[in-house]
Design a protein around this nucleic acid. Structure first.
Lengths: 189, 189
DNA sequence: ACAATTTGCCTAAGGGGATTAGGCAACAGC
DNA sequence: GCTGTTGCCTAATCCCCTTAGGCAAATTGT
């Protein structure tokens, strides 16, 4: 029997592709085994279990997302940075819905600590350097931005804004305008 | 054999309770059968299948949420209405995490049309009557509010804001202040 | 009150995914 | 070429989903 050359990394990448094709919750050890034309049990030499697979895909997605965001942020500030950052999330979710869903996967504290989650938070804070916010308002703003981006992208992905005017792209642009205005004029307590 | 008296309604309610206890994705026809001390196959006289069960729970959650929101909105306007509405979502999600997750369940067009989704949208629009927005900005604002509420609640439920200062309640209040300010001063295109 | 009918829950059976134990063949290093 | 390790396999167990067909309990009509 010829060996196929499975590794945790190859399985994770293939799992991510599978997620984008059929949805993250349809990513299964069995489906992955079929994809490699290998018996299911064989994967257990490389993966601890099904949760391990999903965690790895989630970590991959978080890394990719952070990399793209870092790229987009380079050399930008103010509203420019805000929009670039936001678009990275939205575009990633549209290009890779399965991976985006994976990035929402509930990680255990172990994995969460090792994830790119920290980079995301840092970058969101970096954007706010272009605005005049001090703590604790900065944290409130970070949380709000995260909520809007995640919320909008989730709802859009779930089909919430299709089949109704105006265009989702239009709303997205205007919401970014509104957020920029809000950050420039954050209300005092 | 004595009959237990299963009905789709009782199963749906029990499913919702189960969801709150163990998580919506752990809600299974088998677990529900165990809860009623009945064989699994017996449930299929009342439910079409597993997806049917989940859809029913989702519809129940959407109704409950809409009822609470309608209640909270009665007699309120402006920021008062905004905060009351937002708190309904957040409180419901904290009291009933499984149901809240169910409300996010992807419904087929059939079920979606019969759901309380429309009421939610109408109520969000009603809140905006207290502000001076015309179309299409009103729709943009509706979408933004939905995104913030859903996004914040999701992130909070996923544990995103615990273990870090300031308190999540604090951020929530300040974000509502900020949204109110933004709606009173929505930027021109 | 009792027969006829409907209906609720059951047993049985088949299919798929997760996971573990134990075996043998392919590879790497000497 | 021999040896030890590793990769993939078979086999077995468990849990969930779903359908088919049967018997008994509730309900209905007389």
């Amino acid at each position: 029997m010829t060996r196929v050359g499975l590794t945790a990394e190859r399985l994770t990448r293939a799992g991510a592709e599978l997620a984008d094709e059929v949805g993250f919750d349809q990513v299964t050890v069995s489906a992955l085994a079929r994809r490699f034309d290998v018996k299911v049990a064989s994967l257990y030499s490389h993966l601890k279990n099904s949760q391990d697979l999903k965690t790895r895909i989630a970590l991959l997605a978080l890394e990719e997302l952070a990399d793209r965001a870092a790229d987009a942020l380079a050399g930008r500030a103010g509203k420019d940075a805000l929009a670039a950052f936001a678009n990275v999330y939205r575009d990633y979710a549209r290009e890779h819905p399965g991976r985006y869903a994976a990035a929402q996967f509930r990680l255990d504290p172990q994995a969460a600590a090792a994830s790119a989650g920290g980079r995301h938070a840092q970058m969101t804070r970096a954007i706010l350097r272009g605005y005049d916010l001090t703590e604790p308002d900065q944290t409130h703003a970070v949380r709000m931005l995260g909520s809007v981006f995640h919320g909008y992208v989730s709802l859009e992905l779930a089909g919430g804004f299709s089949h109704s005017a105006p265009d989702s792209q239009e709303s997205w642009s205007r919401i970014l305008d509104a957020l920029d205005a809000l950050l420039r004029n954050w209300p005092a307590p």
